[in-house]
Amino acid sequence: MDPNLSINVLYVDDEVHNLNSFKAGFRRLFNVFTAESAMEGRKILETEMIHIIITDQRMPVMTGIEFLESIIPFFPDPIRILLTGYADINAVIDAINKGQVYKYVQKPWMDEDLRINIEKAFEIYSLRRDNKELTEKLLQANQQLEFLLRQNLLS
């Protein structure tokens, strides 16, 4: 990873000690934003450019999957990682299908594994962003060519 590139990571978990542990483990590597609830997480998304969202599955009021699913229409670009201490296969399936989750990681996480997953997720984020920009440039070039072609056909 390019050391000059800052990756903005949002971690949402209702357990404060998990948030503190995550911040302590990753604040030197990434720009870490934390939220104790889905609502708090959404407020951060509205004010910060977040690349990676990590959320716990089991939270009161709204589960991690419900949170991820609810933000897709408004924040489709961040890559999503679901964390849970429970091996619930239905949650995994829902996460992939509804929450468009890139990775499912079991708690307690291993710092090195999670770091690699965050970096790989950012590579995907960057590739998608680059692809979107190239597609837009290609569409503009096509429109210009069509315009020039029409001009030639009319003259």
Rank of each mutant, 00 (worst) to 15 (best):
D2I: 06
P3L: 14
N4W: 07
S6L: 14
S6A: 05
N8K: 05
V9C: 09
Y11S: 07
D13P: 07
D13W: 09
D14I: 01
V16I: 07
V16T: 11
V16C: 03
S21V: 12
S21C: 10
F22A: 04
F22L: 13
K23I: 15
K23G: 15
A24I: 12
R27W: 09
R28Y: 11
L29E: 14
N31W: 04
F33Y: 15
F33Q: 10
A35Y: 02
A38F: 03
M39E: 15
R42W: 13
K43F: 10
I44K: 01
I44L: 07
I44Q: 08
L45F: 09
E46Q: 12
E46K: 09
I52A: 05
I53V: 11
I53K: 01
I54H: 01
T55P: 07
M59Q: 10
M62K: 03
T63N: 11
G64S: 05
G64M: 00
G64C: 15
I65W: 02
L68K: 01
E69W: 03
I71T: 05
F74R: 11
F74I: 07
F75Y: 08
D77F: 05
P78I: 00
I79V: 10
I81W: 05
L83M: 12
Y86Q: 03
D88A: 02
V92E: 07
V92W: 01
N97G: 09
K98Y: 11
V101E: 02
Y102S: 00
Y102N: 03
K103I: 01
Y104G: 00
V105G: 02
K107Q: 07
P108W: 04
E112W: 11
E112S: 14
E112F: 12
L114I: 08
R115I: 06
R115W: 01
R115K: 13
R115C: 05
N117V: 03
N117A: 08
E123S: 10
E123R: 07
Y125W: 07
S126C: 13
L127G: 05
R128P: 05
D130W: 12
E133V: 11
L134G: 05
T135A: 13
T135W: 13
E136D: 11
L138N: 08
A141T: 12
N142I: 00
N142H: 09
Q143A: 15
L145T: 06
E146C: 08
E146G: 00
E146F: 14
F147P: 08
L148K: 10
L149Q: 14
R150V: 09
Q151K: 15
N152T: 10
L154R: 15
L154G: 06
